[in-house]
């Protein structure tokens, strides 16, 4: 699972839709890989406005990336910033571990990079 996705994904449990503790989901026992992928500058610029920056800073820090600026870069991004964002959001992936909801404590397992979001029906 790409770091990008973790900034958009939410707990699927119904009761967590309105809880502010539910986002972002938190990693536990995360094993990381870095996959070299072609830089798409336009894509980074397209999605940046939709990134929850404080959540990204929190997720990144929990995985050991602590050099992110504390506020979202605005205006014309310099080349290095775009590259760094690409590396973090697109190339860095969690291949195994868990995503845990801060509200209901539900654990979503990640196996071979794929998070399991199937829920028992009564939680939906």
């Amino acid at each position: 699972m790409k770091i990008l996705t973790t900034n958009y994904i939410t707990c699927a449990v119904k009761a967590c839709k309105t809880s502010s503790n539910a986002f972002p989901l938190q990693f536990r026992d995360a094993e990381l890989v870095q996959e070299e992928l072609e830089l798409n500058e336009e894509f980074i610029k397209n999605i940046l406005p939709r990134i929850e920056w404080p959540a990204l800073v929190q997720t990144a820090a929990s995985l050991g990336f602590t050099t992110l600026p504390s506020t979202k870069p605005e205006g014309d991004l310099d080349e290095q910033m775009i590259k760094d964002l690409h590396t973090l959001l697109v190339e860095t992936q969690v291949i195994s571990g868990k995503l845990v909801c801060g509200n209901c404590q539900h654990e979503y397992n990640i196996h071979q990079g794929i998070a399991n979001f199937l829920l028992p029906n009564h939680l939906v």
């Binding site: 990008l4 994904i9 939410t10 707990c11 699927a12 071979q112 794929i114 399991n116 979001f117 829920l119």
Partner: peptide, 23 residues
């Protein structure tokens, strides 16, 4: 996975909703 597709993959049931932030 075997085919090395580029998209991020999620095991999920669309009938249970779409677990992403609004917008």
């Amino acid at each position: 996975l075997d085919r090395d597709t580029t998209g991020d993959l999620l095991l999920a049931d669309m009938g249970q909703g779409i677990p992403f932030r609004p917008g």
